[in-house]
Amino acid sequence: MVTRSKHIKINHEFIRELTKLPECENLKNCYQCGACSSYCPSFKYSKVYNPRKIVQDVLVGLKDEILENTNLWFCGVCHACTEQCPQGVELSEILSHIRNLASKIGNIPTHLVSEVKNLLETGQVVPPSSAINRRREKFGLPELPDAPVDEIRTLVKSTGFEDMIRRKIELEKAKEREIMEEAKARMKKMEEKKTEDA
């Protein structure tokens, strides 16, 4: 899935770094059989996301290529790969750790960013709605207690997660701005050209 430069030097550092993390030790046992990918529903249907290939890339140390790849997030976290692996590689856990590293450099999909926004605002990923609350009443279901938004905010700050997400949002805004400016510049050029032509 990663497009490679012509000559690749095997870099053992990334795997050393990764295998220090919990559950990642057994990554080295992978013999590249593809039992994981042959099962992975996400690979089967998306064709762009291949868990075995990620392990292969880790084994040869293609750190940047892996972490910058947005397809990482295609994993449905069904853990089937872990159960399939004949070598006891806890693949879904490892992939999760890899996504943690990717997140640190801003590789987080937008739907998760909005999920976090929801969480920080309402304390829940799927927030309540008044229509549903009316339905609850009809069912005679108990009223829902308030979500502990403050505590969640404090914790998220404490772990540094909020910062990470904020950085990501800023990054995105900066990118947006860049795109806008580029577009403006292009418009300007076009107008200039028009006037010139005229």
Binding site: W73, S96, T159
Partner: peptide
């Protein structure tokens, strides 16, 4: 209780935050 948090995207972003919540 707050968000569990969901086990698919969340732990992928940050495991410690996931565990803490």
């Amino acid at each position: 209780f707050g968000c569990c948090p969901e086990p698919i995207g969340f732990p992928g972003m940050d495991n410690i935050t996931f565990m803490t919540l």
